[in-house]
Every structure is written in C-alpha cells, then in structure tokens.
Write a protein that binds this DNA or RNA. Structure first.
Lengths: 181, 181
DNA sequence: TGTAGCATGTAAGCCGTTACATGATTGA
DNA sequence: TCAATCATGTAACGGCTTACATGCTACA
C-alpha cells in the first residue's frame, strides 16, 4: 500500500504535523498548518484539511475519537502506528522534489519594460513591506518553539525561512536601487 | 473584459513572454518558458501551453499565422495590440500575490525527528548538488541575455534567481553542519 | 442580542499534469 | 532506417480553491 504514490504530498505534510504527537481536530490542524506549513509548503483550505483527514483515516494512518464533551461535535485525530510507519517509509524511500517557487513579484519584474520604472520600484517596496510582516510572523513561531523539546527540526526550518526572507529583502532592495530614473 | 480575473496568472506569464516581440510557435514558447518562467513561476506542460494559447487567441490577445513553409504544420503566435494593453492593465491595476514556496526539502527537514540524522544530512547534500545544477542552468540563461538590448529586466530576474540559489545553498550547508552526530 | 470563533462538511469548478494519439523532418 | 526533435492537440483525472450550508459556544 505504501508504494506507488499512494498519497499526495500535502497528505504527508498534514500527517507529519500529527507526528509531533498531539491529538487535533481538523480545525486545530488547520491552525497548526497556518503557523508552520504555510511558510514553505501551502496553507491548505479548511475544506481540504477535512478531506485529507478523511483520506488518512480511510488509509488507517490516523485514528479518530468523537469528543462532544464541550457541547460541540468534535472529531479529534491522532496518528496511528501505521501512520508513523508510512511517514518513515515515505521519508526513507522517496527523493524530495526540487522546490517550486511561484513568485508573482519576479514575474512582474520580468515585464518591467511594459510599465514606468517607478511602478516597478513601488511594487518592490510593497513586497519588502509584506516580507517584513511575514518575517515577523515567522519569528513569533520560532520564539514559541525554540528551546522546546522535540522541536529542534521545526526550529531549523523556521530559521531557514527567516534567512530566506532576509535574503529576499536584500535582493529586492538591491534591484530597486539599480532601477533607472 | 479586462477586470474580474479574466485570466489565470500563467496565461499572463505566457502572454508576457510574447511581449518581448518574437513570433513563436507553441513548441518554441514551451522552450522559452523552460528557460525563463521555470525558475520563478512554473514550467507549464506542453499541453497547457497549447490550451493557454488557444485561450489567449479566443480573447483576441494574440494573433495566429499558419506557417507551413518548412513542411510541418506550424502555428506562429504574436501578441496583439489588445494583448499589450491587457498586460499593461494587469500590471498597473492589480497587486502581486505574495510568493508561494513549495519546498519539499524543508518539509522533510521538519520531520527530521522521524529518521536518522545522517539521512537528513544526505538529503541536504543532495539538495545542494541539485541547486548547483539549477544555478548553472540559470547562469547560462543570464549569459545569453545579459547586455542584450531590451532584456535588462529579465537579467534582473535572473540575477535575483542566482542570488536565491546561492543563499539556499549557504543555508542548507549551515543546517547540515549543525545536525547532531 | 448579536458577533466572532469553534466545528464540520458538500458541491462546483478551475488549473495543471499525465497519458494518449498523430505525423513530419533531420541527421546519425 | 531509426531515433531525436519538431509540431499539435484530446481525454481523463487529481489537487485545491471558493462558495455554500449548518449549527454550537463564549463573550461583549
């Protein structure tokens, strides 16, 4: 069952979040994704989180527990032994794809000849501002997990992200400086 | 017609490549994409290039010319005045989305606690090798367009990409060095 | 009392990929 | 002559998003 592209990568990603041991509802898993996965993978839509959890459950990779103790109907998911095994197998036997960057700012910069240099400069400045906000968000995440036991790898990833944002900022500013007029 | 998300971004991207003035077949546009767009947007499948060109034609943004002079049945596409206007409008009136990074290496690094440190190290080393190759490809592109008239913006983008690959390499190596054992 | 947050899902639809189908030209 | 390249498309399908639908709890 494990071979032959059984699951899409986002499925493994969500299963991976569950591998840190907590029992989460779909709603909580979405929040967890938004504070981690979103920086270097995707922020899956709420509806996708639910459908991926259903798929993982269908494959026996997570267990569900109905928890209506607080009045709301809530399903809490926990990774199963088979899920842990599947994750390890995936990590051990398959090669990571090369990263894909969807960079609308670079795409528009490519077409700079179609607009005023000042429009390009403003776009880059706007990008730098958003980079700062994104960086601040990620810094908060790092502050929360740094020194936490069991989170050294997530901390590495977060630092990688911070470094990426810093480099992006530097490069965007350099290019803006070299623009004509 | 221009408002209300008329076209997906990849459509604008391909139209943007045509805005450099050349008359291209679908096949050639695919090659052009592979040497430019692929580094910061996507490398669309051959079939998508054809369907996007059909869409652009349907919207009157490109003109087609049947060119069977060399024996093969070939359609050559050129951007129309409406296409240039549409591109300028898009650039001037819409804000770029924030870049999305799909980074399977970072995703797997996040799950480092599930495998041996040496597996993680090997993965990062493999990534660095592929970064080098990717960098070399992009350097070739830059060599071809640098100093070419009308290609200063594409050159900026290419330099941005090179800088990104260099930073990625540096960070990946730093993390590999800090791994245990 | 009403709004924000918690909670779970279904349906429709687009983007994009892979697989499939076809055929001509160039050069080893 | 055979493979690589040039050349164009169709069909099926998966991933993911948006819109829609429902209902409860906490709190201002």
């Amino acid at each position: 069952m494990s071979q032959e592209r059984a699951l899409p990568t986002t499925s493994y990603a969500l299963l991976g979040l569950l591998s840190f041991g907590r029992e989460l509802s779909g709603y909580e898993l979405k929040q967890f994704s938004d504070s981690t996965l979103r920086f270097y993978w995707v922020a899956p839509a709420m509806s996708q989180v639910y459908s991926e959890l259903a798929r993982l459950h269908r494959h026996g990779l997570v267990t569900v527990r109905e928890d209506d103790s607080d009045g709301r109907r809530t399903k809490r998911y926990r990774i199963s032994d088979a899920g842990m095994a599947e994750l390890r197998e995936w990590l051990a036997t398959s090669e990571p794809e090369f990263p894909v960057l969807k960079h609308p700012v670079a795409l528009r910069l490519l077409l700079g000849h179609l607009v005023e240099p000042d429009t390009v400069r403003k776009m880059l400045e706007g990008y730098v501002e958003r980079l700062e906000r994104q960086r601040a968000d990620l810094q908060e995440v790092l502050d929360r997990i740094e020194d936490a036991p069991g989170y050294t790898y997530p901390a590495h990833v977060a630092r990688w992200g911070l470094s990426y944002y810093d480099d992006e900022r530097r490069t965007a500013e350099e290019i803006a400086d070299r623009l004509p007029e």
